[in-house]
Design a protein around this nucleic acid. Structure first.
Lengths: 139, 139
DNA sequence: TTCACTGCAAAACGTTTGCAAACAG
DNA sequence: CTGTTTGCAAACGTTTTGCAGTGAA
């Protein structure tokens, strides 16, 4: 009763290393960097190498099982949520929060028209100060 | 008395190297990478070094004279336009086009509310296929 | 036997830094 | 004299690659 046989098929076909990488990403609540994924993956599969983590991430990304986020300020982060969504970044602590802003998709049309682009996707990034940093300015 | 004494003062106070870097960015119609800026700056000031270009870019950015763009897919690009605006990127040829979408600012409020962020800025990135690549699919 | 995958080390890439020398105030 | 900036080379963090070895079909 699988709605997405290709993806489920892909999951079944995963090597142990790729499965571990995927599980690390899925079991994390945040958005991990490759290095953090490597550290956590090693706890489950101590022989896994850094290169294999990167190869796995590339493979999982191509398979549509994870998404890569990069805001240009350091290492890429990997997201278990592959559906389109936006992000808010705290400029003080770096926290990355998912946003769901349906209006963004509407903007895609007018933006594409203005730039004479065939629109494929759109992404909105909010920067600001998160609730935690507002309450604890010292930290 | 100028309206922006700090910025005008900053321009006057620029060293020859920083002035050249700024001129390269201002005289380019596109969004140059640090490497491209270095190549062009060398034509005007043959002794300038890579490190100085980077130092200058950092300084000019802090002074608000240029803006840095980084979409996570390679080197940063530097923009003479420092006012808030959005961008469209062609996924085929990499062309970067400026967008002006006033509605983006309105989205900032609802986005900030949703994420419980104190909004500082917002940026919208459209990806798609530009007119040139649509007409010349082979290139 | 074939072919994809792993693990290691080394390279590649963009960027920053340590430091001595040159310069400006 | 003091502080800033330069230019060089070397280092840095992130990511990719070359290659020999492993393992499944």
């Amino acid at each position: 009763m699988s709605l997405e046989p290709s993806i489920n098929g892909a999951i079944e076909a995963l090597t142990p290393q790729r499965r571990v990488v995927l599980e690390v990403i899925r079991s994390s609540m945040g958005h991990l960097t490759a290095n953090e994924i490597y550290e956590q993956a090693r706890r489950r599969l101590s022989t896994i190498s850094y290169a294999t983590v990167y190869n796995s991430l590339r493979h999982l990304k191509q398979a549509g099982l994870v998404a890569e986020l990069n805001f240009g300020n350091g290492a890429s982060r990997y997201d278990r949520e592959t559906a389109r969504h936006d992000h808010a970044i705290c400029s003080q602590c770096g926290t990355l929060v998912d946003l769901n802003i349906p209006a963004t998709v509407d903007l895609m049309r007018s933006a594409a028209l203005q730039a004479d682009f065939e629109a494929v996707s759109i992404h909105l990034t909010l920067t600001g100060v998160c609730a935690g940093c507002r309450e604890a300015p010292g930290s």
